[in-house]
Structures are given as C-alpha cells and as structure tokens.
C-alpha cells in the first residue's frame, strides 16, 4: 500500500540557516507518526512545507503517491492535507460551528453559490457538527471564537482539520500551552482518533508522544537522526545524547 505521505530529500535554507536538511519521512495509512526535536530543530518549517505555505528548495513531497511539491497550499487541502496551527489561526466573529462548516464547504468544490444561506445548509452543518463533537467542543458549538479559552481554541483547530475529511492530518503541537488537564484530554482525544486518520504529530509533551505514536522521528538541526518505535527511540544512544538527555 502506498504511504499517505512521503517526503524525499527535502531541503530548505533561510540565508545561512539550514531549516530542513535532507529530510526523508513517511506516514503509512492509519499511522500516527510523531516528530520530536529540540526548539529550533525546524519542525514547524517542515509542516509548513508539507502543507504548501512554504516552498522547499529541493526534494519532493508525495500525497497518496501524487507529487505535490509544486502544488499550492489551497489545492493540497483539496487533495486531503489538513493542518492544525501551533498558534491558533481563527476568525474571531465566526462561531465554532461556522469554522467547521467553512472547512466542509471548502471540500465541496467551488463556493460560487450566491443565494442559499450557508448557515442553514444541512449538507455543511451535519458534518461540521460531527467534527466539532469529535474534537470535544460540542458544548461550545455556537460560541464565537473570540470567547474561547486557549485550550478550546486548540480543540477548534483540531475540529477544523477533522471537518476537512483529511487523508493526512498535520498537527503542529496540539497540546502547546495547555494546562495539565486540558493536555490529558487532548491526548485522549487523539488516542480516540488513532487508526481512523493518518497523522503527523509534532509535540513537546514527551509522555503524550511516547504513548500515542506508532513511530517517531527525531529532528535535530533540520535533519532526522533516527526513526523508529517508541522503545527504539527511547533506547537509542544518539537520540539520548542529542535530545532526551536535556529533557
């Protein structure tokens, strides 16, 4: 079976800084693949290249076997790439449901529909409600994004990504800045989604990552120094030296 996501020899350089240094990576269908690495290792830059907001200097990216290296971000979303942002990227006036419905709408082809009220279209609302429930935000369905707490905003990021019915979920630190309880709830939620979605997860919370991920890759200075199961990573001397030792 083809990998849902495959990255070959990806390079990205900002002036003298090599942000991505020959990354090879794959996500198998239904797999949760986590990327860990110290601050400044280039994790968010990598996600941005996979989503299409940042163009790599060299290398190739495949989604479901299709080369998308030159495909713009909005078309990649159409091919099934969904990204949750590390810093919540929302629309303050839109309710939780509005956000999810917008993501559903975007997947249904063009939006040159001028007459019917979008907030009454069940074809948008039903899948949107489902995504919001799956992200655990059902109680806040009609709250505008501006009224949400930090943790709820992270949940909404997840709800939007789920509403896109993605082939691959790119989750950029979904637990970042959350309190202990919220973080544990989010971990549980991701565990529930495991197997139903192929996911690439960036996360700092080591306990969460080691309990969730099928495979992990360790990113240091833009390069992946090791990919393996949780146990393999935990016991790898190179990884311990480069990263875990400091944690």
């Amino acid at each position: 079976m083809t990998d849902v996501l495959e990255v070959r020899n990806l390079y990205k350089r900002y002036g003298g800084l090599v942000a991505t240094n020959g990354v090879n990576l794959s996500v198998r269908p239904g797999e949760m693949h986590a990327i860990i690495g110290p601050n400044g290792a280039g994790k968010t830059t990598l996600i941005s290249q996979l989503q299409g907001m940042v163009r790599p200097d060299a290398g190739e990216i495949f989604i479901d076997g299709v080369n998308v290296t030159a495909t713009p971000a909005h078309q990649r979303a159409g091919l099934g790439v969904a990204r949750s942002f590390q810093i919540a990227s929302l629309i303050p006036d839109f309710s939780v449901l509005d956000h999810a419905a917008f993501a559903v709408q975007a997947q249904l082809g063009h939006s040159f529909r001028f007459w019917r009220r979008a907030d009454r279209e069940e074809i948008l609302l039903a899948p949107a409600r489902e995504a919001v429930e799956a992200a655990g935000l059902g109680a806040r369905m009609h709250s505008p994004a501006r009224d949400l707490s930090h943790g709820e905003r992270r949940q909404l990021e997840l709800a939007i990504a789920l509403a896109q019915r993605p082939k691959i979920l790119l989750l950029d630190e979904p637990m970042a800045g959350m309190g202990k309880q919220d973080g544990q709830r989010m971990t549980q939620r991701l565990a529930d989604l495991k197997g139903r979605y192929s996911m690439l997860l960036i996360e700092h919370d080591m306990a969460a990552v080691f309990s969730l991920a099928d495979r992990l890759s360790v990113l240091v200075s833009g390069a992946i120094i090791k990919t393996g199961t949780a146990d393999e990573i935990r016991n790898d001397p190179q990884v311990r030296a480069a990263y875990l030792g400091h944690g």
Partner: peptide, 15 residues
C-alpha cells in the same frame, strides 16, 4: 468574510 479576517486559514482549508 473568512478571507477578510484570516486569509491563511482560508487557504489552509482549501480556498
């Protein structure tokens, strides 16, 4: 309305 406030979000969901 979405793109007026947050173009990045609109592009990320595919518009």
């Amino acid at each position: 309305r979405a793109a007026a406030v947050n173009e990045t979000r609109a592009i990320a969901v595919g518009v």
